[in-house]
């Protein structure tokens, strides 16, 4: 039985796909057989972030409609042995997903994989509901600003009322908070909410804090999940996050303003 983890946020553009790619890749790096499923039907992005856009032949909707089988649609990652991607369809819309079809595909994946990462679309409509419905755990991606925090709060409400676990009275979805685009300098200046501020409002367990980093954009553009860039701060923060997801106790990093040395002051950081 695989663990189904949804990466969700409510708000768009906060880093759900970047996070799905990084955490999926991180789990595979740690030796777990992982598949990342793109639920953003019609706005397919995951394949670009994972750098496999030229290898998409069949997609999630094809499998649901029985036009292809899973083996044909799953794309094996070229870098890691036990990492797979199930891409979204670019030509359809969210209504192409229905509970029975999604359940059948997830069940089939569940037999073969340790982790299924569901990359949710933004919003609270059917597409996002479909992505979170079958989840065992949820990673709520939030930026340190008020609108993102409120949308996360909304999605947390959905997780606790609209999921399969809620409907069937099972133990609730395990909720994790992942703060992305965190900039300690701007927090210090009061331009950004701090970790404590966000924690105070959302009151769920903090899984990780990803610093705002040029490495993320570079990684997206080059189709390399940022977690593979182990020299970058964001890559390291994602590695820590994956360890915590697997139950390890790892201290939080990149929360405070880095003290710049003389050279950095002169030449820029």
């Amino acid at each position: 039985m695989a663990k189904i983890i949804v990466v969700t946020s409510g708000k768009g553009g906060v880093g759900k796909t970047t996070t799905s790619a990084a955490i999926g890749t991180g789990l595979a790096l740690k030796g777990h057989k992982t598949v990342i499923v793109d639920f953003d039907i019609g706005l397919r992005n995951l394949d670009l972030i994972m750098g496999c856009e030229r290898r998409v032949v069949f997609d999630f909707v094809n499998v649901i409609n029985g036009e292809a089988n899973l083996k044909q649609a799953l794309i094996k990652d070229k870098r890691l042995e036990n990492l797979f991607i199930l891409p979204a369809s670019q030509t359809r819309d969210k209504d192409a997903l229905h509970k029975e079809g999604v359940e059948r595909v997830l069940n089939e994946l569940s037999d073969e994989f340790d982790f299924i990462i569901c990359d949710s679309p933004a919003g609270i409509e059917s597409g996002a509901m479909m992505a979170l419905y079958f989840a065992d755990e949820a990673i709520v991606v939030t930026n340190p600003e008020v609108s993102s925090v409120r949308d996360s709060d909304r999605i947390l409400g959905m997780l606790s009322s609209k999921s399969r676990r809620a409907e069937q009275g099972l133990p609730g979805i395990k909720e994790h908070l992942l703060l992305t685009r965190y900039n300690p300098e701007r927090v210090q200046k009061g331009e950004m909410l701090s970790v404590d501020d966000v924690n105070d409002i959302l009151a769920i367990k903090l899984l990780g804090v990803i610093p705002e980093s040029q490495a993320v954009l570079n990684a997206s553009n080059s189709g390399q999940p940022v977690i593979l860039d182990a020299d970058s701060d964001a890559g390291q923060a994602y590695l820590d996050t994956v360890s915590r997801l697997l139950g390890e106790d790892v201290p939080f990093r990149f929360l405070n303003v880095e003290k710049k040395g003389l050279f950095k002051r002169i030449f820029g950081g």
């Binding site: 609270i124 409120r150 949308d151 709060d153 909304r154 947390l156 409400g157 959905m158 606790s160 009322s161 409002i201 009151a203």
Partner: peptide, 25 residues
Amino acid sequence: NIRSGQQIFVKGADLIIRGTVGAGA
């Protein structure tokens, strides 16, 4: 917690919440 967008209504009695009522709830 009562999350943003959630609505709780209690008829003819008290409501006790051991948690936070979020903005928009």
